[in-house]
Design a protein around this nucleic acid. Sequence first.
DNA 1: TAGATACATTCAAATATTTCAAACTAACAG
DNA 2: CTGTTAGTTTGAAATATTTGAATGTATCTA
Lengths: 91, 91
Amino acid sequence: MDNKKFEKISRALSDASRITILQEIRKKQGCLYCAEITDMLDLTQPSVSHHLKQLVDADLLIPEKEGRNIKYLLNQEVLADYIACLNFLRG
Amino acid sequence: MDNKKFEKISRALSDASRITILQEIRKKQGCLYCAEITDMLDLTQPSVSHHLKQLVDADLLIPEKEGRNIKYLLNQEVLADYIACLNFLRG
DNA sequence: TAGATACATTCAAATATTTCAAACTAACAG
DNA sequence: CTGTTAGTTTGAAATATTTGAATGTATCTA
């Protein structure tokens, strides 16, 4: 993972709403629907859509279309790579 | 570590200059002087000072005064806590 | 004590982020 | 086809971040 990618992931993780989204997905064994995420956040639907886009653009979430709905899955691999970079910083 | 703290650390990590600072400190076995950091970045001294403040405020760096100079040490403990939070997200 | 050095702070300009209302697209139901 | 539901995109306002010039403060040196 290069620095640009590391920076992008860090930025995606630097917002309270997005942290909540990831934590809730974790609680649900790594998968949540868009509508569920919108319900649990105190934001309008377009704002939630924006935050989800940040997480998807950073590859932290993988979107899966199911008809009109979208299911978001946690990207374990990218998260593991990010953690590996942080561990490297520890020397 | 609560979400506010996690958010602050993520934000501190979401800038190219600050990532470089941490990487260079790692290369030097976890410790660098302010002047060395200013020299290696293509930014003015006040800008570097600003970035160092972000890292210190997030507790990622520990400043140690040595006369007129300041030595910055990597805070291994906080970095480990941050990594633990990320590992928790993996479920 | 006077001048120099190391770093911080303040202020302002440029840029980026967050948020919502409004409008849009895609998929389903009848 | 028409209407509805799920989600995206656009545009604009509010706020935050990044950056550097100017200035301030603390420490060292002569």
